[in-house]
Design a protein around this nucleic acid. Structure first.
Lengths: 207, 207
DNA sequence: TCAAAAGTGTTTGTTATACACCCATGA
DNA sequence: TCATGGGTGTATAACAAACACTTTTGA
């Protein structure tokens, strides 16, 4: 007699392609719909280890970041993980980078919605932006990424001042010339411990 | 031959007892360790529905709030839910309110840690404080709850001004006299839709 | 030498904090 | 009438936004 269906593990692997958010999709099937990499969870497996191993096996290299986003109802119980991949990484064989769907459809739609909101909510708590970017990057690239994830324009001078005050990045001695215009200095992610000063209470986002 | 062990569903039910955070614990066993209500998840069950039903059955009434906090490794795969219970609700038969452990021990320790951090992280995104309080409350009670959850003192005048500017509460015509001192006006949670004004980018919490 | 993008100093407006004070009640 | 906790107005400080500007490159 058939046993209980085993829980699944699904990966929402995100990166940037051409200035837009992309998600790793398995080849084959309906090209208009995202098909996330999934695996069956072994009964005795440690969740986070299994997810990290599956992500490494799928991508062919260790991901830049991985975090659980929750449990979902699919045809079987599915634990979803958000995986961040450094920009410029090629899609592994049998996969491709699909543009992240604005309004996902299909059984994996809740997973895709949760992953994107988790990405946005963690933006000011975890260094997700710095995991998506390569080791060195320009401040304009960083700002463009924040604007993409926050879905709103940011003011250049304010963005830089706030960033510098947070002591999160340090300049390298390299510059990059990007076509016309003045070359941009490259920075690296180098957070400095500092006393976590108390934030004001925010009621704004409350409904 | 034995089948795969079924996934579990665990509830972290929180309320306030005597000005401190408390968690619902099953009677029996080690009184120095929290024992969360757990149930076996049916193969075809919808997660959120199953959790809501289990919470209602356990508490004897519908909870004020419920939200998934993630999947965990226990002896079996366990999906954890954070459940908020209005202050003053008695513990159901076979259970008691235990003071929320500062440093949880035992197999459910990761669940307890995640539930508390979820509660704190959602404080400025979801109306968790208003779910813990009864329908009407004084602003001092609300501020004390925020201070408890944020673990720091807040300035009275600032707290009220920010709260009023957010149009989250409205005064009732009832007042409560609490021993000596001027009676406090009672308020109710009555959020008014307003244009979500863009928050500044925050790098502070980033490591 | 012009367009384009990087980078910076100054001003302005908003908002949280701090302080001081008044109000209403029980003892 | 005094101590206690509720409630509020005003000043100060911190900071994000906006504006204006300089710098440096490719075409």
């Amino acid at each position: 007699m058939p046993g209980r269906p085993a829980p699944n593990l699904a990966l929402v692997c995100c990166t940037l392609v051409g200035g837009s958010l992309a998600v790793l999709t398995e080849d084959g099937g309906d090209r208009r719909q995202v098909s996330l990499p999934e695996m069956t969870l072994r009964a005795d497996a440690a969740l986070d280890d299994a997810a990290a191993n599956f992500a490494r096996a799928t991508l062919g290299r260790a991901p830049a970041w991985i975090a659980q986003i929750g449990a979902f109802n699919e045809t079987t119980l599915t634990i979803g993980y958000l995986v961040l991949v450094t920009v410029g990484t090629d899609a592994p064989a049998g996969h491709r980078w699909a543009s992240y769907p604005k309004q996902p459809t299909g059984p994996q739609a809740p997973l895709l919605r949760s992953a994107l909101s988790a990405l946005r909510e963690r933006l000011d708590r975890e260094p997700v932006a710095f995991r998506l970017l390569p080791a060195t990057f320009t401040l304009s690239e960083l700002q463009a990424l924040y604007e993409l994830l926050l879905e709103r324009r940011l003011h250049k001078a304010s963005f830089r001042r706030t960033l510098m005050a947070a002591h999160l990045v340090e300049p390298t001695d390299a510059w990059r010339s990007e076509g016309r215009g003045r070359p941009a200095q490259l920075f690296r992610y180098a957070p400095r411990r500092r006393k976590a000063l108390p934030r004001a209470v925010r009621f704004e986002s409350l409904t």
